Simulated assay, not measured.
Amino acid sequence: MARFAAAKMVLSENYTSCLNNSNKSPNAPLIPGITFQSTDCSSLMSATIDKTCSISLDMSNGAKTGWAESFDSCQSFNLIAQKYNNFDFVVQNAAINNECSDYVILEASNWDEAQQRSQSLGGNLVTINNKDEYSWLQNNVWAKNELLSLAGDNSQESTYYFTGLNDVAKEGEYVWASGETSDFNNNEDLIHRQNWLAQQHMANSKDYFVIGGTNDKGFTDYVQNDYRPDLYNGLSGHLTWVDNESSWLKNNGNPRHFGLAEIPSCK
Rank of each mutant, 00 (worst) to 15 (best):
A2W: 05
A2D: 10
R3D: 10
L11W: 07
S12Q: 09
L19Q: 15
N20F: 00
N23T: 15
K24R: 13
P29K: 01
P29Q: 00
I34Y: 00
F36P: 09
F36E: 06
Q37E: 08
Q37F: 03
T39W: 13
L44Q: 11
A47N: 02
K51F: 03
C53F: 00
S54L: 10
S56L: 12
L57C: 03
D58C: 13
M59T: 10
S60Q: 09
N61M: 10
W67E: 09
W67Y: 12
A68N: 13
E69F: 11
D72P: 09
S73T: 11
Q75W: 07
N78I: 13
L79R: 15
L79K: 14
Q82T: 08
Q82M: 13
K83E: 03
N85R: 12
Q92C: 03
A95E: 04
N98W: 06
C100H: 04
V104P: 08
V104H: 04
I105R: 07
L106A: 04
L106F: 06
E107Q: 13
A108T: 02
N110C: 05
N110H: 03
R117W: 03
Q119T: 02
S120F: 05
S120T: 07
N124H: 08
L125W: 01
T127A: 06
N129Q: 10
D132T: 15
E133T: 14
Y134V: 02
Q138H: 12
N140R: 09
V141D: 01
W142S: 02
W142K: 02
E146C: 12
S149R: 15
S149G: 12
G152N: 09
G152E: 05
D153A: 07
D153G: 07
T159E: 04
T159H: 05
F162A: 00
L165F: 08
N166M: 02
V168R: 15
E171T: 14
G172W: 01
V175D: 07
W176C: 07
W176S: 05
E180T: 04
S182C: 12
F184I: 05
N185L: 15
N185S: 15
N185D: 13
E188A: 05
D189I: 01
H192R: 03
W196I: 04
N204H: 11
S205P: 05
Y208P: 14
V210T: 08
K217Q: 13
G218E: 06
D226I: 11
R228V: 06
L231H: 10
Y232F: 12
Y232I: 09
N233P: 15
S236I: 05
G237I: 04
T240M: 09
V242I: 13
E245S: 10
W248D: 09
N252E: 03
G253K: 12
N254Y: 10
R256A: 03
H257K: 12
L260H: 03
I263V: 13
C266E: 00
C266A: 11
C266T: 07
